[in-house]
Design a protein around this nucleic acid. Sequence first.
DNA 1: TTAAAGTCAATAGA
DNA 2: TCTATTGACTTTAA
Length: 469
Amino acid sequence: MSSSESVKSLTELVQQPCPPIETSKDGKSQESSEPPASESQSTTPLPLSGHSALSIQELVAMSPELDTYGITKRVKEVLTDNNLGQRLFGETILGLTQGSVSDLLARPKPWHKLSLKGREPFVRMQLWLNDPNNVEKLMDMKRMEKKAYMKRRHSSVSDSQSCESSSAGIDYSQGASPQPQHQLKKPRVVLAPEEKEALKRAYQQKPYPSPKTIEELATQLNLKTSTVINWFHNYRSRIRRELFIEEIQAGSQSQAGSSDSPSARSSRAAHSSEGDSCDGVDAEGPPDGKPSGPEADEFSNAAAKSQGGPAEPAFEAGEEALRGARPSERAEPESLEDTDDEGRLRAPRQSSPPAPQRPGDALETLPNSATEGDASTSAASTSVLTGESSYKSKESSEKISSVPSTSSTPASGSQKANSLQSLFGFSEAASSRNTRDSSLRKKKAANLNNIIHRLEKAASREEAVEWEF
DNA sequence: TTAAAGTCAATAGA
DNA sequence: TCTATTGACTTTAA
């Protein structure tokens, strides 16, 4: 029975994480393994890596659709409940760094949007969750780490006792920064808020700026072009992720209280707007999409609307975006009309605090006719932004169309998938079935609700539109 | 070749 | 000390 085999391998997998833990225990000297640990971590990330690396990939390939959102939710709960840190969990179980774990837990992508590689951590998490002992093990490990740390501290203290006075600083630096060996490291670029604003504005006008635009932005903001390019890449992908979350949350929440509470809204950053993450957002890029695709248009529309008036002077994307950025440095001296004394452009017309985020906001993008697709730099004809950026439109939903249900998969895999499903599913076959059924049902319900929700939204949007005009 | 996906790792903030 | 954010980089996929 292939299934039993897989059960085995799965079981092994589930247990894998511990051996290493135990091993290190045996090997004792966490200290010795620690310093390296941090280093080796990257090289020998996962406990599973060794021989089972392959099998995890196989598992991933064969695994049925997992509820990434649910998994991360559970993981978060478990970690919190047991006071386990992301770092330990990530490095030990997932083979990822803390930041990645945080990201993953906070913004899981839907299964069907994940590549094989991207699915791996989720499979690991699922496996980890499957065996409650794993939590214990991790806790053990945590204790040991602590112990080791204390030991180390003690020993280092006693060691350096003599030379303490003078070397204190040195010790510290050594201990704290693991081999700064090569100071070659580039300092991390930190974009100033104004720069980010400018970039966001540019993004809103053109999510896929032409090289020329990038160049311009870079010059004007006094950044490297690579930084600008990176920024766009990152921003696009992060926005996309925010959308996924909304999608998920909308789905799951609409199913519960659904309808009336628009609040289903992702509490999350997305809107929070904390600003940042996604201001202009929503530009889900059409996967296939050609640059400057719909999003751009949508943005413009939304933006135009938000301005209250369609027609606003058209600026060159870069330029418009730039107003306000780099006050001192490069800011176009010419048109500072909008800027305040400091040269800052501040969201002009509103003079009010930044982005008073209006949730219900009807800014939804009207799927409009395409604007001139002009692509080229100048494109940006749309007015826009001048700073405001809270079009949290949800058109996301529109693009999302895809949606899970499909995800499931190609034929051949399905059989295996089924058997695996139960494996991933948890202890009891029966329960797993139920779970699965119900989760399927849930999903469908969620989908429906989602659709309803969108329709409602669309409806309200129209109203808004009418009102606006 | 390019964009997306996935990560790392520095750093900010609680 | 831990988590969240984010610029940079690598890998993958189209």
